[in-house]
Amino acid sequence: MLIAIAAIRLRDLFAVVMLFGIYSLLTAALFMNLDAVDVAFTEAAVGAGVTTVLMLSALHLTRRWEDEPRHNPLLPLLVVTITGAVLIYATLDAPLLGDASAPVHQHVAPRYIEKGPQEVGMPNMVTAVLASYRGYDTFGETVVIFTAGLAVMLLLGIQEGPQAHRGRNAIGDQVVLKVVVKLLIPLILMYGLYVHFHGDFGAGGGFQAGVIFAAGFVLYDLVFGEGQARAVIPPNWLHRLAALGVLIYGGVGVVSLLQGRPFLDYSVLAHDPVHGQHLGVLLVELGVGITVFSVVLSIFYALSGRRRQS
């Protein structure tokens, strides 16, 4: 809460972005506390990780200091107060925190909890709902990510090839750092794979894995200078990879269509419906992971590869 206030007051944008990262981490901790392990994981990786890095890259390209505010703060304050009042008004009749008899827990949810593990064949109900019951939402989500990647590419263009800015190094030459990172990166990538395939049982899944994978490359790029990571995966391959991820997800749906079943009905993928569900979830998570990884990395490339203009 204090952090939010501080974020309003501060004019050093760098500090604001950092505080925002901390705020995300705290939010993630709160999610843990509220039993939302998957969400906490994602918020920590995305809010605190990806968003902060992207914002810093963008700040690097623009200006760090904000001007004196010239707006009269009264009108916005009024609007916010009214909106807030409506929200408080709304909560007066809302179910209490943790009340198990609230309507939310009565109608649709019990089936996910009681039958989810049997029908979809995996203990993590969040993954089951995400990838199967509401798999179409997740398809939409993958497309959203892809759209963002596409939008950034349209706006900033693709830097072709590794030779673009070879040798520029964000942190400087530090041997110890390089060695540590070299040791770390395989671990990060391994962890990403673990998160991906462990998503059925524990927290995690394609999305988080994609982010972690991308984080590994971002780290490599930061420490070894720009152009290094690009040499491993060239940017113009990334958006093709992203498109491939969407195609994998959509392809699973089309296969169900071709079998005469509704879009994204995984039970046709194997002889045993539960088996089919399992396979379907695995495949779509793979699609999600690939798209997320390549989009996050390519947005980072696009922002970091652009020269600052004054």
Binding site: F146, R240, A242, A243, L247
Partner: peptide
């Protein structure tokens, strides 16, 4: 929707 990745590829 599926034309989109196709366009990009």
């Amino acid at each position: 929707l599926l034309t989109v990745p196709l366009c990009v590829l």
